[in-house]
């Protein structure tokens, strides 16, 4: 340390420890978080240090590398983001009025929900497409990097306590029926109507390391890239651009935009406030 007359790096010790941990996790397990946005990543690493009951980030690194169950908990901590059904109702309303008419022109529609977490927004989209009479000719590919959240998404079981909030969101999103038509309550949870799952395909896909896997008419990637740094964001923007058909629709989160991305010029704005874009070149 400095009191012993040694030169101490400008970079904080914790920054170095986090970088080493991420490098280790990548080299040993192939899970790549090296280009995640630093502030929220740091929060989660600190939370993992606490939850695992270890003394430091370096100690967490040792535990992660020697104990795969620790890695699983770490992956869950890094990938669960708390969302809700019909999050930002205005987005779904805009999707109904501005995107649905475009989709009606296709005989078959492929949608990709990238980074679907526990699936709340996927079921919301399934309900919307169902009400618009489009669902039978749609395939919704819902992907996430984490198999644990995908399992939960596949089940379609959500806490009953959230339904009041979701019902309000549903109505604001232009819902046409009673929200309770779509689920059955049991104890403190609800299970969504299995018919909604008919055309949902949940599968593992990592935006950081995996490539494009199909051509889509719609790609939704909302509040996912906020966890990436600018370099990684650019790469994912390229990946999504390559995965869209010409005139395909791209939707991002309310506080994300295509400004300063390399693909901005390739899209027209379909709805500025609700962050809906259309690939035009």
């Amino acid at each position: 340390m400095s009191e012993k007359g040694l030169q101490v790096a400008d970079e904080g010790l914790e920054d170095i420890e986090i970088a080493l941990l991420l490098d280790g996790v990548y080299r040993y397990y192939g899970a790549d978080f090296r280009e995640y946005a630093p502030a929220s990543l740091r929060r989660r690493v600190r939370e993992a240090v606490q939850r695992e009951g270890v003394e430091s980030v370096s100690a967490l690194q040792a535990k992660l590398l020697h104990d795969t169950s620790c890695l699983e908990r770490f992956l869950a901590l890094l990938s669960i983001n708390v969302t809700s059904m019909f999050r930002d109702p205005a987005f779904y309303l805009a999707f109904r009025t501005k995107v649905v008419p475009l989709l009606r022109t296709y005989p078959f529609v492929r949608l990709w929900h990238a980074g679907c977490s526990t699936g709340e927004e996927v079921y919301s989209m399934a309900i919307l497409l169902h009400e618009e009479g489009l669902y039978p000719r749609c395939r919704v590919y819902a992907t996430d990097m984490n198999p644990v959240v995908l399992r939960r998404a596949r089940e379609g079981i959500f806490p009953l306590a959230s339904m009041q909030e979701y019902t309000v969101n549903y109505m604001r999103a232009g819902g046409k029926r009673f929200f309770s038509d779509y689920y059955t309550a049991q104890y403190d949870h609800v299970i969504f109507n299995p018919a909604l799952k008919a055309n949902l395909l949940f599968s593992e896909h990592n935006l950081v390391t995996d490539g494009s896997f199909n051509e889509f008419h719609v790609v939704l990637c909302r509040n996912v890239m906020i966890y990436f740094n600018k370099t990684l964001q650019k790469r994912v923007h390229n990946l999504i651009y390559e995965s869209l058909v010409m005139f395909g629709v791209f939707g991002v989160g309310n506080k994300e935009s295509l400004r300063f991305t390399p693909r901005e010029k390739n899209y027209d704005v379909l709805d500025a406030g609700n962050r809906l874009y259309r690939k035009v070149r």
């Binding site: 502030a39 989160g253 506080k255």
Partner: peptide
């Protein structure tokens, strides 16, 4: 903004939907 955490990084803001 509502319903997001707002974080500061060197030079820019970052948002998060953590719990």
């Amino acid at each position: 903004p509502r319903d997001y955490h707002l974080l500061v990084e060197r030079g820019n803001f970052a948002l998060s939907t953590e719990a």
